[in-house]
């Protein structure tokens, strides 16, 4: 997996030579796909960038008629100002139906004198082969926690915010490798107080402290159901977290628990089941209690 640094270097050299192939950016959310596309347009076109750059979110406009009308019309009209070509950015292109993707193929080729396409997607396997064949494919990996720390420190300095060590750890925890989440958390916490600490970050992002979730799981696995339920009530009532917030964090915390793999899989399966029931509208306290009871049973080794 290539780090973003090298992709950025490549993009910079495209800007320098004022030429661009069609690009396909693939990778998880919040790793810089959209940001890269916009940055390329800004550096290429300068002040006129908004005239020569159009952004379509394919999950909103995903049908074949959008490709045949809106996109084709933008593609075949000449670029404005000094620009040599325009850029069409199709965000979440994997949401385009495959018919719509097919309709895009010849448009990408016929109007290359006027325009270039940048497509972004989460999984490149959702983009049909003929489109991939027409693009240079760049795979964006998840962002390292160090990179997030650097970036957050940089932004905090510019914005005059003070982030202490615990606060930084909290930002990294809630970001889950997603830069957008990290920056949003910093901004939201910074609005309340110039001093950003752990409490503010967890509160603003509806996140329990990892230790609290850890102790919730440990209490249950050790057989203390009442203790675990008291903890659960605190999270639900005092901290105002939703059942879904809690279940997602339980899921995350399980990865680091040192219990046998086979047991971990069973617990994870059960967590997923409860997650599903919560999204179906089941009562969060009863469902989470049922989960904790299952943990108690699993912890005793009586689970078959």
């Amino acid at each position: 997996m290539v780090g973003q640094d090298e992709i950025v270097k490549r993009l910079q050299s495209y800007v320098k030579s004022r030429n661009l192939p069609h690009l396909l950016f693939s990778g998880p959310p919040g790793v810089g796909k959209t940001a890269s596309a916009i940055a390329v347009a800004k550096e290429l076109f300068g002040d006129t960038w908004t005239n020569n750059f159009t952004e379509l979110n394919a999950s909103d406009e995903r049908g074949i008629d959008v490709v045949r009308n809106k996109i084709k019309n933008f593609a075949r009209t000449s670029p404005l100002g000094e620009a040599d070509f325009k850029i069409i950015f199709l965000d979440e292109a994997d949401a385009l139906t495959s018919d719509a993707q097919s309709a895009l193929r010849r448009t990408m080729e016929k109007y290359t004198s006027n325009c270039r396409f940048i497509l972004s997607c989460n999984y490149s396997s959702k983009i049909i082969d003929p489109i991939q064949s027409r693009c240079a494919v760049y795979r964006f990996g998840p962002i390292s926690l160090e990179a997030i720390e650097q970036r957050i420190a940089h932004i905090a300095k510019i914005e005059g915010l003070e982030v202490n060590d615990e606060g930084m750890e909290a930002i990294k925890y809630v970001s889950m490798g997603d830069m957008r989440k990290a920056i949003n958390a910093l901004q939201a916490a910074g609005l309340l107080d110039k001093k950003v600490d752990m409490e503010a970050i967890y509160q603003i992002t509806a996140t329990a402290r990892p230790e609290e979730i850890g102790s919730l799981i440990d209490l249950a696995l050790d057989g203390d159901f009442i203790g675990a339920r008291t903890k659960l009530d605190t999270l639900l009532i005092n901290q105002g977290l939703s059942g879904e917030d809690i279940i997602i964090q339980i899921h995350r915390t399980m990865f680091d628990k040192s219990i046998p793999d086979i047991l971990k899989v069973k617990l994870m399966d059960r967590i997923g089941e409860i997650d599903f029931r919560l999204t179906e509208g089941a009562n969060e306290r009863i469902q989470l209690e049922a989960l904790l009871a299952y943990f108690v049973l699993a912890g005793k080794g009586n689970d078959s």
Binding site: V2, R10, Y14, H22, D129, R134, A136
Partner: peptide, 30 residues
């Protein structure tokens, strides 16, 4: 066996360059 994608990959790595090495290939396989 897809010649067009090969040409695209070649161009993607050579814009702004005059010498290419294997390490310059950073486009992902399709």
């Amino acid at each position: 066996g897809d010649l067009r994608s090969a040409i695209n990959d070649l161009q993607a790595m050579s814009i702004g360059k005059h010498e290419l090495e294997v390490d310059d290939i950073i486009t992902a396989p399709r």
